[in-house]
């Protein structure tokens, strides 16, 4: 595109906190025209952009999702696509060339990075020996009597806190059967941190901003603070290097019995709590846009310690502006 024409950015998952965080960050740039998409007509982020820039998309798991989104990007002349939905990311990353052929750059880590992050067992194997990791095994391949209880059980693949629970003893673990898609992980006793991490095109980490999650509601941090802790930052940097991160990911760490940070998982996308990181000095959506546009990033971006409490906000729109039920097809 020419330097004079604004960059057209489409954000999917406009109903989620991550989508809204990206939209709000990029709305501050005067060189950007924002478009928003979601599968749900009531997704609040749709109503943060101009009426003409609201689009419905198919569910990320549906067969026609990619064809449809590529078509949308072509017609709407989308320069950069931000997907904030877990299930969309690998499908879009696999079609990066098709998107590029219609002039759209996908602002997301590589498919290889996504695949290793979205498979928590592969991630634990990749990072063992690089950073501290809790003992991790597949449910069907481990002896229940060999663990200290309680242990964490969670889906091998999955987003957020869905399906994650504590198991109190070997009998209860045995009762879960031998599902290969379930992970058993040592339950670390310490505090948990989310480290928002941005790596440039060479994989150099530009910023790693640890956040403590002071209160979590439905997997989303509703109160938190940034934490200046070089050990947390360094651990996230090592994880980013191990998974080959280019772009933004959220590295989840927890302190072990010795108080040392260990890796729980990596969410290779923007977290819902991103506004805190932005407010603390690191505007990752904006930096990720510059990265997608192949503009140089600063070598490092500092942050300050800052706390946040969050609340639901209302978007008021005329009745006629709300997409009605009959529109569904």
């Amino acid at each position: 595109m020419s330097d004079s024409s604004p960059t057209r950015v489409l954000v999917t998952g406009a109903g989620g906190p991550a989508g809204i965080a990206v939209l709000r960050s990029l709305a501050r740039r005067d060189d950007v025209v924002l478009l928003a998409a979601d599968m749900d007509r009531y997704a609040s982020g749709l109503y943060l952009v101009d009426a003409g820039a609201r689009h419905l998309v198919r569910p990320g798991l549906s067969e026609e999702f990619v064809d449809h989104l590529v078509g949308l990007c072509e017609r709407e002349r989308v320069d950069v696509l931000f997907s904030t939905v877990d299930v969309e990311l690998p499908r879009l990353a696999a079609e990066r060339k098709r998107l590029a052929a219609v002039g759209t750059t996908l602002a997301a880590p590589s498919l290889e990075t996504l695949e290793v992050c979205l498979d928590k067992y592969a991630l634990a194997q990749r990072c063992t020996g690089v950073v501290r990791t809790p003992r991790t095994a597949l449910l069907g391949e481990t002896d229940p009597d060999s663990w200290d209880y309680p242990v964490i059980v969670k889906p091998r693949r999955g987003a957020g806190s869905r399906g994650v629970h504590l198991v109190e003893d070997a009998a209860a673990l045995r009762a879960l059967g031998s599902d290969e898609d379930i992970l058993v992980q040592a339950n670390l006793p310490g505090d948990e941190y989310s480290v928002d991490t941005l790596a440039d095109a060479d994989g150099t980490v530009v910023a790693a901003v640890p956040r403590s999650r002071l209160r979590v509601d439905s997997g989303v941090s509703v109160a938190g603070s940034t934490v200046a802790d070089p050990e947390l930052e360094e651990t996230a940097r090592q994880v980013a290097a191990a998974v080959g991160l280019v772009g933004v990911a959220n590295v989840q760490l927890r302190r072990d019995a010795e108080g040392r940070p260990a890796l729980l998982e990596v969410n290779p996308r923007f977290p819902g709590a991103m506004p805190l990181t932005v407010a603390a000095g690191v505007d990752m959506p904006s930096l990720a846009l510059d990265l997608a546009l192949e503009r140089p990033l600063p070598a490092s971006v500092p942050f300050r310690e800052l706390a946040v409490v969050r609340y639901l906000e209302d978007v008021f729109v005329p009745l006629a502006d709300v997409v009605s039920e009959e529109d569904a097809r």
Partner: peptide, 13 residues
């Protein structure tokens, strides 16, 4: 209209 993949309003609207 909604006959286009990404539009949100029906022809009647």
């Amino acid at each position: 209209s909604t006959w286009s993949d990404d539009a949100v309003s029906a022809p009647m609207e």
